[in-house]
Amino acid sequence: MLNLFASLGAWGMASLTRLGRAHLLLFPLVRGLLDILRRPRLLVDQLFSVGVLTILIIAVAGLFVGMVLGLQGYNVLSRFGGETALGFMVAASLVRELGPVLTALLFAGRAGSALTAEIGLMKATEQLSGLEMMAVNPEHRVLAPRFFAGLISVPLLAAIFSCLGVLGGWMVGGGLLGVDQAAFWNGMQEGIDFHDDVINGVIKSVVFGFVCTWIAVFQGYDCVPTSEGVSRATTRTVVHSSLAVLGLDFVLTALMFG
């Protein structure tokens, strides 16, 4: 029994100190902005590998999610003769919820895990130590550009997701199921509020982007520098990011729309 408490306590302490280290890492990350300003190239390279290479999966996923929304929405709405509200329904679901949330989940799986593995392997192969000995701070030089690239990419990716989702909904609703085209777009235009829907969605995706990239970068930097340690850290990145995104989504939704 005493052992149970002791190991519980040790686990709690370890988790807390890790959380502390994660927060302390934010200072050098922000400080790394100076390096990025001096050499924007660092950020541009990361924007490509973190952001641009994720566009395809986001676009395809967005299209399919929109198509499903079109189909399901039509089934429900047509029972009440409300097919004309399909455009609004599709767009609102995407912009408010599905766009930011699914983008963040896909980002954690595609880019977050890759970030963790890359940084973890750099640690395991002494590349980070090597940078330190060359008088280059790896937190500024390696972590910060990746962090800001993620922070910038996720909201943009969420926008792409939502746009293609709307397109998918329109293809199914307007194209296949014969909903009136004008009503589809009109309903969307009138129903969606710039502040309530679009801005809140953007705020969500900025928060998710921050959390996902922060977790990914920290897990890589904090991993045990062995192959097993890197693989565990990669798993943790995906699990922690997904849970954090879903939990935060509830909190943010309650604050914004509650």
Partner: peptide, 13 residues
């Protein structure tokens, strides 16, 4: 450190 060089076991390239 700029005046010290270090050759790591793995090379660390």
């Amino acid at each position: 450190r700029m005046r010290m060089g270090m050759l790591f076991q793995s090379g660390a390239l």
